[in-house]
Amino acid sequence: MSKFLGNFFRSIGHQVDDGIWRLGYACRFLLTLLIYSGISFRRFRLTAKEVYFTGVLSLIVIMVSGLFVGMVLGLQGYNTLQRYGSSDSLGVLVALSLVRELGPVMAGLLFASRAGSAVTAEIGLMKATEQLSAMEMMAVNPIARVVAPRFWGGVIAMPILAALFSATGVFGGYLVGVQLVGVDEGAFWSQMQSSVDFREDILNGVIKSVVFGILVSWISVFEGYDAEPTAEGVSNATTRTVVTASLVILFADFILTALMF
């Protein structure tokens, strides 16, 4: 029994130790990445290409999801609000839910699974096929040339995707609320306009999406760069990116919400 307990605690200790060590390594990696970020802005084409891959190619999934989430909000919101006779506030409910919470969080989760996993797999495979080593031997720093542009591409793309998610979501809410169930169009828009505050709501939402962008991009490039250079290693790293990024987004959202609102 005591042996079993010993092993049990040892394995917990080992995992905690491992986790802290990895976190430290990830922080050092981020620091190195930031130091070598100059090239991402001097040769902005490299970063722009990544914005295209992570951002533009995620547009469809983001916008379709946004539309449906907005439509669901419209239905559920109307259902609840009309019980209290305040269905005219549907616009406010849809807009605030999206801008404050669902926009950044849902876009972040979708971004992690659509673009983050792709970045991890790409960097991991480049490592497994010695492309990163080859680059190093060509006197080109892979962190500066490959990793940093992907990181910044994600950081730039994420807030734009979150904004688009919220915008299509509001449109989805409008479609269902105004066109389908017949909330007054003027009330829908005017209440939204008067109740959504730029600084308090929109700016805070943008800050959230920037933070999520940094976190997801950081996790994706780190997992890719740190992946074991085998098929199994890359697949594990991709899974870890999606799982870690999703949990981190939800956790960070809680912290940010507590601080902001």
Binding site: M126, T129, E130, Q131, S133, A134, E136, M137, M138, A139
Partner: peptide
Amino acid sequence: LRRRMGMLFQFGALFT
């Protein structure tokens, strides 16, 4: 110094 070296990797390591 590496600019004065060339290395051929086992499977080429071309950028795909």
